[in-house]
Design a protein around this nucleic acid. Structure first.
Lengths: 223, 223
DNA sequence: ATTTTTTTTTAGATTTGTCTAAATTTAAAT
DNA sequence: ATTTAAATTTAGACAAATCTAAAAAAAAAT
């Protein structure tokens, strides 16, 4: 079961477009893949012949169970490589997507399983998107303001809504950045401040204002 | 300047075959690349048009300076990835070649330079072959029995000539394996034993017999 | 219920990398 | 110096993935 990079890209694009379980239309796919509708039609016929998707001319397309499985493996590889690039090689989270688009097509299964282990089996990539496990199961991830994070839940910072220098200055002071893993120990009712815990550091408190501007992702699978 | 994986493979194969500076013939290339002589001829014409090699029909082929530069970058990537796979992901040195054949075609320059840094700028891959630097300069590497390693030269174990359980047992006792970096502090004339130093460990001595069965690689560039 | 517009598919080409079979050149052998 | 053998190239074909232009189907608009 090995597919060309091009086929893998089609499967991935269809997976992303068919959000719920609706059918995906040819034009949308062409737009997503930077290609022409005619090329899409050609490829859909090939993928259908391989039973990776359901396709009737003019009626749109939908992945089969097999197709979904392949798509999830590509997404798994993409997100693990992104994590590697940010966490181990120090790339910024904006620059990793393009490189991961290439790395996701490396085929060795053993490689990706070992990479996952090496990275410590992260639940989300640097953007906070969930990483499917080796069976293709995707953890359910909540993304909320830090303010709304349940107590004692470990979450990763995925974005900062306010980019003012004052804000960035404050984050620097707390040594908080994209990817930082933290949890909320408790809320102080009096002034609405939060006590924050980060592994291997003393706990500290932050203001409600700061917490409302920090967005985090956390695993809700085993909630 | 981006080339297809196929073209990169041709350049790499020619580089390896043209050991000294001799011309490479079509059949040898076809054998190396698992392809047919006719296909090689076709490709040589394309590579010549890109000034990556000198080629006259029936007279063999030789890389130009440009072609060599490209080949060295591929080799650099291949060997750095091999090092990564063994040193970071715990692969055995026999299983990494195939995976590195894929990884070597990932194009990002920044990726490979950061990977090198992350790995601590190793001089050789797990097989003891030298890794070209980002300019394409290849360190000169000596491979000898540990017995013949100059004093105080840091070298990496690359192979073990005797695979008996007794031998492997002894290596295990000394915590020596493929890739272990060590140096010889001194030789004791009386019984020909060697004093060995490994970073972060107490020095110890080994027998002449053991040293004659351990092969090592070391950088001779700045000798 | 037509007509118009949009979407999608077909038909025919193109590029890249490969192949087989036949022709040609070079090298080896008598 | 021919003949034979080996190596190399040409000619023509093919699969994968793409494209343009034209045809067909579905959806939207009147």
């Amino acid at each position: 079961m090995k597919y060309s990079s091009s086929k893998e890209n089609y499967l991935k694009a269809i997976f992303h477009l068919q959000q719920d379980d609706s059918v995906v239309n040819t034009n949308a796919l062409a737009r997503q893949l930077n290609t022409k509708p005619a090329s899409v039609t050609d490829m859909l016929k090939k993928l259908k012949a391989q039973k990776l998707l359901q396709y009737q001319p003019y009626k749109g397309v939908k992945l089969t169970a097999d197709g979904k499985k392949v798509a999830l493996q590509i997404i798994r590889k993409h997100r693990l490589w992104e994590y590697f690039l940010v966490d181990k090689l120090g790339f910024g989270w904006e620059e990793v997507h393009e490189i991961a688009e290439e790395l996701e097509h490396i085929s060795s299964r053993k490689l990706i399983d070992r990479l996952e282990l090496f990275l410590g089996s992260p639940r989300t990539d640097p953007h906070g998107d969930p990483i499917p496990d080796s069976q293709g199961k995707m953890p359910v991830i909540q993304q909320t303001a830090l303010l709304d994070l349940p107590l004692k839940k470990t979450a990763a910072v995925i974005s900062v809504s306010n980019q003012s220098t004052a804000m960035l200055d404050l984050l620097k002071h707390y040594h908080i950045g994209i990817g930082t893993k933290l949890q909320v120990n408790r809320r102080f009712e009096f002034d609405q401040t939060l006590e924050i815990a980060i592994a291997n550091r003393p706990v500290f408190t932050i203001s409600e204002l700061l917490a409302s501007n920090l967005f985090v992702a956390y695993d809700t699978t085993t909630a």
